[in-house]
């Protein structure tokens, strides 16, 4: 059986790829995808911990299911808002949203 550390390495990598993507992407949809990567890292963590450390519970599985559902709702709203930005500003890059400042 694969030891639990392997899963943690994968999830940590995925987390930092997501954080790096959130900082460096130029496209708003790209930012959204980076957030999804982080959430996937979280899901891997929950499921791996549950399977290996606490096999007679289901709390981690349930939590990851909730995360998937809520993330879907959040993405739907975010996509709608980004569409609105695209309609108003003409493109959907980070540079297009810079009007608000003093």
């Amino acid at each position: 059986m694969i030891p639990v550390q392997f899963y943690l390495v994968i999830s940590t990598l995925l987390f930092f790829i997501g954080v790096f993507g959130f900082i460096s992407r130029k496209n708003l949809i790209g930012l959204l995808m980076s957030i999804e990567l982080i959430l996937n890292a979280v899901n891997i963590n929950f499921v791996a911990f549950n399977r290996y450390l606490f096999p007679n519970q289901i709390e981690g599985y349930i939590y990851s299911l909730f995360i998937i559902v809520v993330a879907a709702a959040e993405t739907a709203v975010a996509i709608a808002i980004i569409m609105n930005v695209y309609r108003r500003m003409g493109n959907e890059t980070v540079k297009s949203i810079k009007e608000l400042k003093n």
């Binding site: 959204l32 957030i35 982080i38 709203v77």
Partner: peptide, 18 residues
Amino acid sequence: ESAEAAAKYILTAGFSSS
């Protein structure tokens, strides 16, 4: 401005909650 503010809010909120 409203669209811009909302985009900034939802993206940072999503990032922070993840």
